[in-house]
Structures are given as C-alpha cells and as structure tokens.
Design a protein around this nucleic acid. Structure first.
Length: 362
DNA sequence: ACACCTTTGAAGACG
DNA sequence: CGTCTTCAAAGGTGT
C-alpha cells in the first residue's frame, strides 16, 4: 500500500483516513457517542479500518481510473438494455451481489431472467424480511387503478408506456404488484410454495375506502427519483450499521455510511454505480416523460439562511475540489468536513497519480 | 404533522 | 461550461 504522507507507526492500512477523521475531530462530536458501547465503537472503527485497507490496497491504488458510471465499459451501455442484456450480471463481478434478484414484476408474464434462478443472495438485513427486495419506489406509484397495477394510471394511459419487456435483467427493486405472488414463476423455488401452502389463505379485507383516501388516491402520484449509487449502498448497509452501532438516528448513521462509502474499494463502489445506472435506465423506460424537476418544490425546503450556511461550508467535498482545482470525477476528496471556524488539513487523493496532497483550509 | 439532520450522487437551473 | 440547488432514503428529534 502506498503510504503517502503519513502512515508511520500505525499498522493500519487506512491510517491516513483514520487519523484524518480523528485528528480533525470533525463530525465525530455530532454523533452521540454515548450511544455507542465501547465494543460497538471498536467494532465500527475496526470495520472502518478494514474497509479502508481495501481502498488503500495496492491493487486499488494501482487502479488508474475510478469506475464511474460514465466510464463503465461500453458493452454495458444502452445496447445492453436494448437487447436483453443477458449477461449483465452473469459475470463474476456480480456473483456476490448482495441485492435480491426477483422477477421483474413488470414483465407481462412475470417471467424471470435466467439469472434469477440463482439463489438470491441476501444479506439478511435486520428487521427486513429476507424476501423483501430493496424497493426504491413507493408502492403508491403502482397501486393506482386496477387496470394498471404497476404503473401510475396517468402515465400508463397518457403516455402509453408499455412495460418494458427487456428488463428481465434488471434487479427487482420494484414492488411486486398486489397480485404479484401469482406471477412468480417456478424459479422462485420451493420456498414460496412452502410459504403459500403453510400460510392461511389470504383474503384481502374488503374494507370500504374512506372518501378522503380516495381523494388522495386520485392525486397524481409522485414518482420518486431513482436512487443513486450511494443511496443504494445506504439502503443496503443501514441495518448493518444500526446493528453494529446500536444507533438509530439516521443523521449519525448516514455519517458513518458516508465514511464507509469512501472506504469502499473502487470495485465495490463500481457495483453500486452500475446498479444505479441500471436503476436510472429502468426509471427512464418506465417514466419517459418524467423529470427530476417534477418533484421540485414538493418538499418544503429549509430556510434560505440555512442553505447559505451549508453552502458556505468551506469543507464540503464539492467546494474543496473546486477550490483546489481538482477533478470532480477522478480526484477523491478525503475527509473534508472540518469543524467550522477552524483550520484543518484536508487530504486529497488524486487517482490519476495516486498522489496525496494536503491543503490547509482557513 | 412535518421540517430538520446527515450523507453522496444525479439532474436541472442559472449565470 | 461551471456552479448552485433540489431531491432521493431513513428515523430520531424538535417545533
């Protein structure tokens, strides 16, 4: 491992990161540390170190380019989506893919990709049913109208969107339709059969819909943004971090996840970038007319004052990169969050040259 | 009930 | 083109 700058006596591969995080004192204080047991904290730190080692390994360091979605091989490009893309996840790169691969609920016959015959590799998230896929889009999007259980009625009808038939390779991040169980093919295996046989017959309660709810349903459903790579990573790892840290506060969890994200190896991150790319493609196919702008203003945003505060943070990664003329794509900014009103040493890892530079922020 | 916090990345808006 | 803004998830917390 190229130890650049520091590294001296520490035997930990990710000394730089760890030291930087600790030395800067940054957001550690924001995390309610009293919520950690000593062991949890140790575990967390140790896990961070282990992951950091991965990112700092010679192999990772030798990787000249970070694999962002724009830089992914062309063979994974649109062509793959247009033509069934049969081998997308067949490669070894995804052999251990942690997400549950379910049948594409949008296929007319609910057929599954051959890949789906593989045993779903699920890291059983705590409190998450093992059969529960990671679902980025709310069921609301698909529960409007009996004619089209999968798509918002307005989109389905207005835009004539047909469910893509080429998405069998797309991870099953989308909700199963209400009758989805019946569409699951034998490839889902005996497990579902057993579940169905042992479970009492499910008779959906025929509760009359209250009028207000109907009004709500009549409202145009909000189509959420597709999740980006980090969001997908968070979704997968949140339960794990919560279990490790006995933390529940999302803000603190997200801070940890952000660090872990940086500690991931390029290859690990590439998996999520690729998945996010496919998510976007699927989203585009499902909602061709949708724009992120559609959701602008649907959330009440914080006050202008707050926004300016956050923007004035001199240590935000974006600002750091911009400030020092670093490449937003290839230069990874190390621990950038520094206590406000305080000078701090920032560390940048330029992937091109595998060099490391320090900048003093005032 | 709902905004805020906190993270990264994508996309739109804007100068 | 570069920069800024907004939103995506999540759940405790505060108003």
């Amino acid at each position: 491992m190229p130890q650049l700058g520091s590294g001296g006596g520490d035997d930990l591969g990710a000394t730089d990161e760890m030291l930087a995080f600790k030395d800067e004192g940054e957001q550690e204080e924001k995390i309610p540390e009293n919520a950690f047991t000593e062991r949890d904290l140790a575990d967390l730190k140790s896990s961070l170190v282990n992951e950091s080692e991965g990112s700092g390994s010679p192999a990772a360091a030798a990787d000249p380019q970070r694999v962002y979605q724009e830089k992914l091989p062309d063979h994974m490009d649109d062509a793959g989506m247009k033509h069934q893309d049969p081998g997308m996840y067949k490669g070894s790169a995804y052999s251990g893919y942690p997400f549950l691969m379910l049948s594409d609920p949008y296929l007319p016959n609910g057929s599954m990709s051959p890949l789906s015959n593989k045993v779903p590799v699920v890291q059983p998230s705590h409190g998450v049913h093992p059969l529960t896929p990671l679902i980025p889009y709310s069921n609301d999007h698909f529960s409007h109208g009996s004619h089209s259980p999968h798509l918002p009625a307005d989109i389905n009808q207005k835009q004539g969107v047909h469910r893509p038939s080429q998405t069998s390779d797309i991870p099953g991040f989308y909700p199963l339709p209400p009758g989805g169980v019946g569409q699951i093919t034998p490839s889902m295996g005996c497990l579902l059969v057993a579940l169905i046989l042992t479970a009492p017959p499910f008779v959906p309660p025929r509760k009359p819909q209250p009028e207000p709810k109907r009004e709500k349903e009549a409202k145009k459903p909000t189509i959420k943004k597709p999740l980006n790579a980090f969001m997908l990573y968070m979704k997968e790892m949140r339960a794990k971090v919560i279990a490790e840290c006995t933390l529940k506060e999302s803000a603190a969890i997200n801070q940890i996840l952000g660090r872990r994200w940086h500690a991931l190896s390029r290859e690990e991150q590439a998996k999520y970038y690729e998945l996010a790319r496919k998510e976007r493609q699927l989203h585009m196919q499902l909602y061709p007319g949708w724009s992120a702008r559609d959701n602008y203003g649907k959330k009440k945003r914080r006050t202008r004052e707050k926004q300016q505060d956050s923007n004035s943070d001199p240590a935000s990664p974006k600002k750091c990169r911009a400030r020092f003329g670093l490449n937003q794509q290839t230069d990874w900014c190390g621990p950038c969050s520094v206590p406000q009103q305080q000078s701090s040493l920032l560390t940048f890892y330029s992937l091109g040259s595998v060099s490391k530079q320090h900048f003093l922020i005032d």
